[in-house]
Design a protein around this nucleic acid. Structure first.
Length: 293
DNA sequence: CCCCAGGCACCTC
DNA sequence: GAGGTGCATGGG
């Protein structure tokens, strides 16, 4: 096992770890105290990730980011938490905007995640009409039941497309997925048969969004989530219920009669290139703050 | 009992 | 393409 620590200056140690991993972006991490989405962590609490090539755990302690694990853990850490993103430069692209500024001040240093495409796709198919805490529970259930054992550990990584393709709709309904069960199974089968969501990473943004909607259970909103949280399309702005409400109240000029048109308007409003970062700060702020706008 | 949750598939027109 | 409807499940 390797171990180390990263010094990160400014912006809440350069990585608001709890906000990044408990803001409904990734559903693949667990906590050593088992209290994900239930209670704040302490300096002893590890965030843990089992993946196909090993495991990684990380915690923020004494102003540093401590990590340990197997399977090139530092590289995985940098990749999954986008630690190479230059946050001050990203903030500088945002408009002068009181609500957006309040959202950044709420969790300065929060980062986007970079999840593997298949796991991200399934996670957000499950997100339809569902609270963040329950989406998390579904992904835990899928992993515990159909996941892959990480060699040398008792931890399980998110299931492969093949593993989920071999389930039945009834199997997945038994895990509480409800009407999302057939969507998950069919999309897993499509990926197992060779339709690769990663292809969208190299396409122009709007083409990429359209491409992802070929998967069952994936509409424009879920496609935007996968583009933003997995495929490096940082301009993607998922138009969920929270963001739609804020558009009505704060950016009424951006409201249009279709998803693509509203998307384009709000992406422009949020400065284009990193509009998805702005969306994610707003989402977390609106969803969890005691007194949002 | 009601309503709602990081929407989507399917059906009309 | 735009607009309505049904959909599983758990929590307030």
């Amino acid at each position: 096992m390797e171990a180390g620590a990263i010094e990160l200056d400014g912006l809440d140690g350069g990585c608001a770890l709890t906000a990044t991993l408990e803001s409904g972006q990734s559903y693949l991490w667990t906590r050593s105290d088992g209290l994900m989405y239930q209670a704040p962590p302490t300096e002893q609490t590890w965030y843990e990730l089992a993946h196909e090539a090993g495991f990684l755990r990380v915690r923020r302690r004494a102003g540093r980011l401590e990590w340990e694990g197997t399977g090139d853990p530092k590289r995985v850490l940098m990749d999954r938490l986008r630690l190479d993103d230059d946050l001050p430069s990203i903030y500088a692209e945002f408009p002068e905007d009181p609500m957006l500024q309040a959202a950044i001040n709420y969790v300065p240093g929060m980062r986007l995640v970079r999840d593997p495409p298949f796991a991200c796709l399934i996670s957000f198919i499950c997100s339809a009409q569902m609270r963040v805490e329950r989406i998390y529970g579904m992904q835990r259930a899928l992993t515990e039941t159909y996941g892959t054992i990480v060699p040398g550990t008792d931890a399980k990584a998110f299931p492969t497309p093949e593993a989920l393709a071999q389930t039945t709709e009834a199997d997945l309904r038994a895990l509480g997925l409800g009407y999302r069960a057939p969507y998950v199974r069919e999309t897993a089968a499509m990926v197992a048969d060779g339709t690769d969501p990663t292809t969208a990473a190299d396409m122009p943004y709007e083409d990429a969004r359209s491409y992802l909607t070929q998967f069952t259970g994936v509409g424009e909103k879920v496609a935007d989530c996968v583009l933003l949280f997995s495929l490096d399309h940082l301009e993607a702005v998922p138009l969920d219920t929270w963001i739609r409400k804020s558009i009505e109240r704060v950016y009424p000029a951006c409201a249009r009669d279709s998803y693509p048109a509203t998307s384009k308007a709000i992406r422009t409003q949020f400065g284009g290139t990193y509009a998805g970062y702005a969306q994610t700060y707003l989402f977390h702020y609106l969803r969890t703050s005691e007194d949002p706008w």
